[in-house]
Structures are given as structure tokens and as C-alpha cells.
Computed example of a mutant assay.
Amino acid sequence: MLQEHTIEIRVRYSETDAMGFLHHANFFKYFEMGRIELLRAQGGSYKEMEAAGIFLVVARIGCQYHSPAFYDDVLTLRTIVTQVSMCKIEHEYQLLRGDIKIATGTSTLACLDREGRIQRLPEEVTGKAAS
């Protein structure tokens, strides 16, 4: 299982607020982009998992803002898997502009079936077959 993945994100004009800052709600969208690309980099696909009835839902998420980002900034998002259990996965996020820390965050995702019942994480997420 891939434990860490990095992507670059350019702040779009529509993601900024009236003061020209990257709007706080977009940090969570960026975190989701990081999770999706981490899974893709290890050969998995949210689209295929959901078609198979496997859903990773956000059970908890948080963000600590350190410095503003602005339109056209190129940011680096590092997504790190910090813990995996039978039915949940935890991530940490580091969003940077060069050496400047823009934000840090954490999330916990729970694995559910179509009816909303907790189920085992699939092999494409954990990297190991269910026992």
C-alpha cells in the first residue's frame, strides 16, 4: 500500500474569496483530490469501488490554517496514510507553497456498503487480502 503521495494544485480564480484568499472551503476539496490521486497511484479507483458497492465516507475531517494562498499560486499537497484498520483509514495533509506551510489537516474515512453498513476496507485500499 502506498503510504504517501504528492500532487501540485494551481489555485483557480473561482476558488478565491472577495479578499483574494483561497476560500477555506476549498481546502477540503484539495484534501479529497489528494486522497483520490493517492488511491489512483496505487492502482485503485473510487469509481470502480463505488460501482462495486464500496463507499469511503468522511467520518471526521479537520484543517488548521497557517498562511493564506492566493489566485495562481502553485501549491504542493502531500497526502499521508497515517493509520489503517479493518474498516477505516486515516490521512494527514500538508499543503505548502514552496517552503511556506499553508495548511495541515487530518481525516478519517469509514468503509460502508450501499445500505450504509460498515464493511471491511477493500484490498485496493489496504494492499492486503481480507482474511
Score class of each variant (00 low, 15 high):
11 V>F: 01
11 V>I: 05
11 V>H: 02
12 R>N: 02
12 R>V: 00
12 R>K: 09
12 R>H: 05
13 Y>T: 08
14 S>L: 04
14 S>I: 02
14 S>M: 08
14 S>K: 09
14 S>V: 02
14 S>A: 07
15 E>D: 09
16 T>R: 05
16 T>D: 02
17 D>F: 04
17 D>H: 06
17 D>I: 00
18 A>P: 03
18 A>L: 03
19 M>K: 02
21 F>A: 02
21 F>H: 03
21 F>E: 00
21 F>P: 01
22 L>I: 04
22 L>K: 00
23 H>E: 10
24 H>E: 02
24 H>M: 07
24 H>Q: 12
25 A>V: 12
25 A>P: 01
25 A>K: 07
25 A>D: 05
26 N>E: 04
27 F>M: 08
28 F>Y: 15
28 F>G: 04
29 K>D: 06
29 K>S: 09
29 K>W: 10
29 K>V: 08
29 K>R: 15
30 Y>G: 01
30 Y>M: 13
30 Y>W: 14
30 Y>C: 01
30 Y>Q: 00
31 F>L: 10
32 E>T: 08
32 E>M: 01
33 M>G: 01
33 M>H: 13
35 R>Y: 10
35 R>A: 15
36 I>W: 10
37 E>I: 06
37 E>W: 05
37 E>F: 08
38 L>T: 00
39 L>C: 12
39 L>F: 14
40 R>D: 09
40 R>H: 13
41 A>P: 02
41 A>L: 07
41 A>K: 03
41 A>R: 11
43 G>E: 13
45 S>I: 13
45 S>A: 04
46 Y>P: 03
46 Y>L: 14
46 Y>H: 05
46 Y>I: 08
46 Y>W: 12
47 K>T: 07
47 K>P: 03
47 K>Y: 11
49 M>L: 14
49 M>I: 05
50 E>R: 13
50 E>Q: 06
50 E>V: 13
50 E>N: 14
51 A>G: 00
51 A>E: 14
51 A>Q: 15
51 A>D: 14
52 A>W: 05
52 A>I: 07
53 G>I: 12
54 I>W: 04
54 I>L: 12
55 F>A: 14
55 F>P: 06
55 F>R: 06
56 L>P: 06
56 L>V: 03
56 L>F: 05
56 L>Y: 03
58 V>L: 11
58 V>C: 12
59 A>I: 13
59 A>G: 14
59 A>F: 08
60 R>Q: 13
60 R>M: 14
60 R>W: 05
60 R>K: 15
61 I>V: 14
62 G>M: 04
62 G>S: 12
62 G>V: 04
62 G>W: 03
62 G>I: 03
62 G>L: 02
63 C>N: 10
64 Q>N: 15
64 Q>E: 15
